[in-house]
Amino acid sequence: MAARTKVSIRINGTAYSHEVEPRLLLVHYLRDVVGLTGTHIGCETSICGACTIMLNGAAVKSCTVLTVQADGGEVLTIEGLAQGEELHPIQEGFWECHGLQCGYCTPGMILSTYQLLLRDSKPSEDEIRHAIDGNLCRCTGYQHIVDAVQYAAKKLRQKAVGNRILDPI
């Protein structure tokens, strides 16, 4: 077995520290080591977006990031979005607008939406479709997902407080 490296990563506000193989993918670290299985794997080749998370404030495909690259970083996964029982407005949007069927793409879609709404609080339909173009959904045909993003954007605009409107933690 290869030498192990120590990593310390804050995930959803909690500090984690483990010894990992340098080649361990971040998505496997999150799922298999930390036990946060909400982040999914649909291709392992950066195409489907099911593994999308936020790393240091940017959406990344965690199947293409090594765990050691995230050392010292801050990660937000789907499990970190809701505050207790209160859903994040993006989650609410997906629920209200039937933005998911099998749900497998959903965590990645929601995190890509999170990134979009950080940058743009009032995206057009075109901009939404552009923003989620790196996330495949085989079930929905995307229409209800677009509706969900619009719902969330509106809700967030109503709730906006300063510029920390999206911070779930």
Binding site: T37, T77, L87, Q91, W95, L100, G103
Partner: peptide, 15 residues
Amino acid sequence: RRREDPRLIRGLAHY
């Protein structure tokens, strides 16, 4: 609205 969604949108479902 779907009753299966809360677990799915929170990343708590089990595939």
